[in-house]
């Protein structure tokens, strides 16, 4: 990509006593929208705290825009928690965030109105935050992260609790700020659909390990000669019989989804006969389409299999 990475982690570890929350995590991401994915307890929140400089790594290091010292003024952060002052009006809260970022009161108020206009907050900005709906609170939280015009936005679950139209609107805003205003956005979420909709790059964490760090296209886009087989019957022997062709599995209870990568379509018949001869029953054998869900679960299952 030839640019300075927005975030670069090198062998980043964070331990709390005997518990390792992040284990030797290394990745680098570039300007754009970056999806930070992982199940609960994966280490996403800890990674965000380390990026924000609110925690110190046990080992390894982080650079932001090529610098090791975190410049909080360059970062806008939208926390997952409500984190509002209910007795403040919307525009006052955003201006307060601006003042904390170093803007003068007058400038903070002007920026607050600009951003809230941009987010279509209308007259609602003059109401107290305690009276806001979830969607409006998410917008105000996004506005306070943007008020000082940061280069990097870190958003923790920005679409949590939103109904589908509000969620789409939020994702549209994120795309607008990234594409039109050139901001880099780290989007930490559980919602794979959100990531697939707007992200350019993906970092996948699980149990403190970095399972993938690449462009979204690389993770889900190039599906040439990739197939999904749903295998019932003797699933374990069937998967073993596939050997290195298997790039991931997903246990579905009565059957297993197996993701395979082969050299050419000519191998398909051979693969099917391998499964059948191992005692497996093929329920479905289809070409794999670009789907983040499948790729994500395949990564998690692959990690699980490696542990076993």
């Amino acid at each position: 990509m030839g640019e300075i990475p927005v975030i670069q982690c090198r062998n980043l570890s964070r331990r709390f006593g005997s518990k390792t929350v992040l284990n030797n995590v290394s990745f680098e991401v570039y300007p754009g929208i970056i999806g930070l994915l992982g199940p609960n307890g994966a280490g996403k929140s800890t990674l965000i705290k380390l990026i924000l400089g609110l925690d110190i790594p046990s080992s390894g290091g982080i650079t932001l825009f090529g610098k090791t010292k975190v410049e909080l003024g360059k970062i806008g952060f939208m926390p997952e928690a409500k984190a509002i002052i209910p007795s403040m009006k919307g525009f006052e809260f955003v201006a307060f965030a601006g003042e904390l970022e170093g803007l003068k009161r007058k400038d903070a108020l002007r920026r607050s109105h600009e951003i809230l206009d941009c987010l279509s907050m209308g007259e609602a900005r003059f109401r107290k935050l305690g009276e806001y709906s979830t969607g409006m609170i998410q917008k105000v939280k996004l506005a306070q992260a943007l008020v000082h015009d940061p280069e990097l936005l870190i958003l923790d679950e920005p679409t949590a609790g939103l109904d589908p139209p509000a969620r789409n609107q939020m994702l549209d805003y994120l795309s607008y700020f990234a594409r039109q205003q050139g901001k880099s956005i780290v989007l930490s979420t559980h919602l794979l659909g959100d990531v697939q909709s707007v992200c350019d790059q993906v970092v996948v964490l699980n149990f403190g390990n970095c399972l993938a760090s690449c462009s979204l296209e690389t993770l889900v886009g190039n599906k040439e000669n990739r197939y999904l087989i749903e295998i019932a019957g003797n699933q374990i022997d069937s998967i073993s019989a596939l050997g290195n062709l298997c790039i991931g599995t997903q246990d579905m209870g009565g059957f297993t989804k197996v993701f395979i990568q082969c050299e050419s379509t000519a191998e398909i018949n051979h693969i099917a006969s391998q499964v059948l001869s191992a005692g497996g029953v093929i329920k479905k054998f289809i070409p794999l389409e670009g789907n983040l869900d499948d790729a994500f679960f395949a990564l998690l299952d692959k990690q699980r299999m490696e542990k076993i």
């Binding site: 924000l52 410049e71 952060f77 409500k82 984190a83 904390l100």
Partner: peptide, 13 residues
């Protein structure tokens, strides 16, 4: 309790 502490800490003060 209101989780605003984490948010405040993320500001450059």
């Amino acid at each position: 309790e209101g989780k605003t502490l984490f948010w405040l800490f993320s500001k450059p003060v």
